[in-house]
């Protein structure tokens, strides 16, 4: 039940493999939902780098999703670019624009902490929304931009399953890269900053720069998710950058378990399930969504990923109060 690091890696591997093998047998609608969840999982994991590992609760993560998505849509409709092999160029550009936006925003945001950080990222996110909503000549305003078709280069991404595999590939790559990142010395110093910023500063770390780099990296992954998001629905509208998207991303991380990476992915799956599936089944789905928010906060401080640890602690307590926890 409670796995070692290696065991956990294996579990993830098996699940990804299962996702890959089972896809052709699932119904087209399930594929669509899972694709959506995987894209949002990339966004949630990027946010987890900030929230879970660095301790920066960003309320504007949708901005990078939006930048990537709008870039994709604008290139595709105006310059007919990114609909063939050049799709891969757009992927790179999407990551870059996300990172660049974060690099700019970071200059404003990083020096703040706690509540101020929440507020300033909210403000920055709203700036992006404002532009998306009103800068008609560029973004199509409230109409949004329709992308004529998904890219094709040898393979037809128009096919739901093919696109799913592409997204799964990016999801696995993102997960792997972020995992390497958090295991690196840089990642460990981020955690150090989260725990004791002052101490790290005394030890000679440039904590501002560390946070800034983490912020930019998170932006890059957000941009990547944006490119994939744009082609999922074929429409990009200000709806992707509204406050609710940012808040949802936060919920995904908190629900899954901050500081666990895959927790964000689980959270994304749950939120997609609620928003896009449950909403078509029952009219009162928002009670469930709101309820999930409230209950998570009240009863699951460690998120879903924290449940095993909780159970273990509970069992140990049952086994005998004298026993010390091995941590």
């Amino acid at each position: 039940m409670f796995l070692t690091d290696r065991g956990k890696l294996w579990t993830v591997f098996v699940i990804v493999l299962a996702l890959a093998i089972l896809a052709p047998f699932a119904s087209a609608y399930v594929i669509l939902l899972v694709t959506q969840a995987l894209i949002l999982a990339i966004l949630a994991m990027s946010l987890d780098i900030l929230l879970g590992f660095t301790g920066l609760p960003s309320l504007g993560q949708a901005a990078y999703l939006g930048m990537g998505a709008y870039l994709t849509a604008i290139l595709a409709t105006r310059y007919d670019f990114g609909l063939g092999w050049s799709f891969w160029v757009v992927i790179v550009l999407g990551i870059l624009i996300g990172a660049a936006t974060a690099a700019l925003f970071g200059l404003f945001a990083i020096r703040a902490a706690g509540v101020s950080f929440l507020m300033i990222t909210l403000a920055l996110g709203m700036c992006v929304w404002g532009l998306a909503y009103r800068w008609n000549s560029m973004t199509g305003g409230d109409n949004g931009i329709n992308i004529p078709a998904r890219p094709k280069f040898g393979i037809q991404l128009a096919d739901g399953v093919t696109y799913y595999y592409l997204v799964l590939f990016f999801f696995v790559m993102s997960l792997a890269m972020l995992y390497v990142l958090i295991k690196s010395p840089f990642g460990r110093s981020l955690v150090g900053i989260r725990e004791r910023e002052l101490r790290m500063r005394i030890l000679g770390y440039n904590t501002w720069l560390h946070k800034y780099i983490a912020f930019v990296i998170a932006g890059g992954f957000g941009g990547l998710a944006g490119v994939l998001w744009a082609h999922l629905n074929g429409i990009v509208s200000p709806q992707v950058v509204v406050l609710a998207t940012s808040v949802d991303a936060l919920l995904m991380v908190v629900l899954g378990g901050p500081g666990t990476l895959v927790g964000g992915a689980i959270g994304a799956a749950v939120v997609v399930f609620l928003r896009d599936y449950l909403s078509t089944v029952v009219p009162w789905w928002q009670y469930v969504l709101g309820g999930v928010y409230v209950l998570t906060i009240l009863y699951l401080p460690g998120g879903l990923m924290g449940i095993p640890a909780r159970i273990r602690r509970w069992r140990e307590e049952q086994a005998g109060p004298g026993q010390e926890k091995k941590r």
């Binding site: 690091d5 579990t11 699940i15 399930v30 992915a265």
Partner: peptide, 17 residues
């Protein structure tokens, strides 16, 4: 670094499917 799955992941995806 709780990178790795647990039964909850499976349960959620299972429910979804």
């Amino acid at each position: 670094h709780k990178l790795g799955g647990s039964c909850s992941w499976m349960v959620v995806m299972g429910c979804l499917a």
